[in-house]
Amino acid sequence: MLSRVADRIFWMSRQMERAENMARILGVTANLVLFGASDRREENLRAPLTITGTSEGFAERHQSLTLETLIAFLALDEANPSSIYSCLRDARDNAHAVRWQITSEMWETLNATWLEVRGIRRERVIGAGATQFFDWVKERSHLFRGVTYGTIVRGEAFDFSRLGTFLERADNTARILDVKYHILLPAVEDVGGALDYYQWTALLRSVSAFETYRALYRDQIFPIKVAELLVLERRMPRSLAACFVEINHSLERIEGQHDHSVKRLAGELLARLTHSDIEEIFQAGLHEFLTGCLADFTELGNRIQRAYLGTV
């Protein structure tokens, strides 16, 4: 497959997944800000900017940090390259460039999503409208992934699409966990302590893991188990471990010439996420562990670009 085409497909899927994750982060933030404890309001508002690394960009465009300005900036701001709007636009542009290498259903899904988001007015995305909007973004992402899975020929286009989806998802889950954990549990000693139940539930819901937690642990919510679920639990489809199972599956099918370093790093990450023990991770520091993972995800992305996608 042409490197340029693979690159477009990879980024098409990454951007769609990124839009979904942004919607998840904003959805849970809106919830926490509206219904959560007021002493954490400021922290909760700041978290999405920290998670997506857009604090500076926000400061350039907005003076005060409110739920309205936050959503305006991260949901519909055309000038913010990380906004949902921009992600959906980029996903659609990438699809447009390769619409003959993907299925018409995939193209139509992304094109229709883009046409619709273009028509959404800012005033509508507040209060209940905001929740509706975030749910819609998630649905469109689910639809796109389902359409992709259900229609595209099993080959490199499929593999690079999956690679993009799961690398992006792993990155997002790690970021959400890192930032939220820090807010909720600044000191390691608190691991077993009293919990802001509502906040932890919200974190789990942001990655669709609340029911899974209940089903798998049949227990109260303990921070260490939340971390275990989102990092190591393969049965949890948004966990880092689950993402790397998928990433390694895709890489096994992709045949490249100088891709040993890609496959090695992906394999190392899978091994780390398979054989680690959550207690040990906590002893060494969850933040340090996640920071290390995030650096490796970035490195893996760079190696994928170099080995397959024609960019240096």
Binding site: M1, L2, R4, E255, Y308
Partner: peptide
């Protein structure tokens, strides 16, 4: 394949396309 100029390169007098497999 549908290629653009940037997908192709010339080496030792032959034309090649940049592909994921080399």
């Amino acid at each position: 394949e549908l290629v653009e100029g940037a997908d192709l390169f010339v080496k030792d007098g032959y034309v090649y396309m940049r592909a994921t497999g080399g």
